[in-house]
């Protein structure tokens, strides 16, 4: 009996690993296929650099939001946060503040927005879906109010560099931000005590609380950093577009959450992998880019994106059901 169980363990481990590995295989196949079908433009500097710069801002936020989602919460306000950060950045630059100070203020603003969400959820006790849908509207509303709904030019050497700078003249700076974010979140989630607490809370908040884990603190800090990550994403987007406008980031919360779920994170918490999220972001972004350069009508692109999400998540459910029937 014991030996048989051991086999089961290794099988289970394999399937969990497989989910992420399969996603990366899909990604590589997709990329190769797109490079061929979309030749020569798809696999060219002219296409790839804007593509990776764009997916960077999605990925930075997705990595941190994965931590929040594994702990069993969610943050819909990231889109609004991006919009407000963009407006704030542009307005402060207009006032003539130095670029580095604007960056600091923008990130601090992100922390403040995250703290507000965290407080609503952990202190007041509002369900995070409701709390952050509420703040999503509030942040964007503030953005519209501050700018009167207009786009404001955001040109400044520091800001320009965040989205469009090139390190060693070949690596887009957002990619550096993306890699750093993923390395940090990966280490936290897979190797740190903090990450262990996040997984434990997602798996069973009550048992975690009754084991002396400060559940509210862990969740609060998740929201805090999610706010900061969204603000950083907002800075990248502002830089890429060279304008700050309240519409920035509209709908992005759903794209980002889709990518995370595509990557295998469970909505209820407890399960999720940072690398899975990375794969999810890459797959959705590469697909979107390919369809766009192939001149596919935007309406169809949306349908394809939605279908991919449903298809992948359905296979998760089916595989889980099969695994359950086996035991």
């Amino acid at each position: 009996m014991v030996e048989i169980k051991t086999v089961e363990v290794s099988q289970k481990k394999k399937t969990r690993l497989n989910n992420t590995v399969i996603l990366f295989i899909i990604l590589v196949v997709m990329f190769a296929l797109f490079s061929y079908v979309g030749r020569p433009f798809f696999f060219s500097k002219l296409n790839l650099i804007p593509m990776v710069s764009n997916l960077s801002f999605v990925g930075i936020i997705a990595a941190v939001l994965t931590m929040v989602m594994v702990s069993g919460e969610i943050d819909f306000s990231i889109g609004g946060n991006i919009g407000l950060t963009a407006c704030l950045t542009a307005l402060l630059l207009e006032r003539g503040l130095p670029g580095w100070l604007v960056v600091i203020i923008a990130i601090a603003g992100g922390f403040a927005m995250g703290a507000f969400n965290g407080m609503l959820v952990t202190v007041v006790g509002v369900n995070s879906i409701i709390a952050t849908i509420g703040t999503m509207f509030i942040w964007r509303g503030i953005g519209y109010t501050l700018t009167n709904g207009e786009s404001i030019l955001a040109l400044n050497p520091v800001i320009d560099y965040i989205g469009r700078g090139m390190v060693f003249q070949v690596i887009p700076f957002p990619i550096i931000l993306l890699v750093v974010t993923f390395v940090i979140t990966y280490v936290i989630m897979n190797h740190s005590k903090w990450g262990r607490r996040i997984y434990a809370i997602g798996a069973n908040p009550l048992a975690s609380f009754l084991s002396g884990i400060n559940v509210k603190k862990v969740k609060f800090i998740g929201f805090l950093f999610c706010g900061a990550a969204a603000a950083l994403g907002g800075l990248v987007l502002t830089s890429l577009s060279a304008v700050g406008m309240p519409q920035h980031g509209q709908g992005q919360e759903l794209v980002i959450i889709s990518a995370i779920i595509l990557g295998g994170t469970a909505l209820g918490g407890g399960r999720g992998q940072i690398l899975g999220t990375l794969a999810g972001v890459l797959i959705l972004s590469v697909l979107y880019n390919f369809l766009t350069i192939m001149n596919i009508y935007y309406f169809y692109i949306q349908m394809v994106q939605g279908s991919v999400l449903i298809l992948v998540v359905s296979t998760y459910e089916i595989r889980q059901a099969v695994a359950r029937r086996r035991t």
């Binding site: 740190s192 005590k193 903090w194 262990r196 048992a207 975690s208 407890g270």
Partner: peptide, 26 residues
């Protein structure tokens, strides 16, 4: 009492995660 989807070792150390090593890593 238990985080059911986690392993035996994670559950045994659940109340003492802070004691799993000196640094912030496990």
């Amino acid at each position: 009492g238990l985080a059911l989807m986690m392993g035996v070792k994670e559950n045994i150390t659940l109340a003492n995660i802070a004691d799993l090593g000196k640094s912030f890593l496990i």
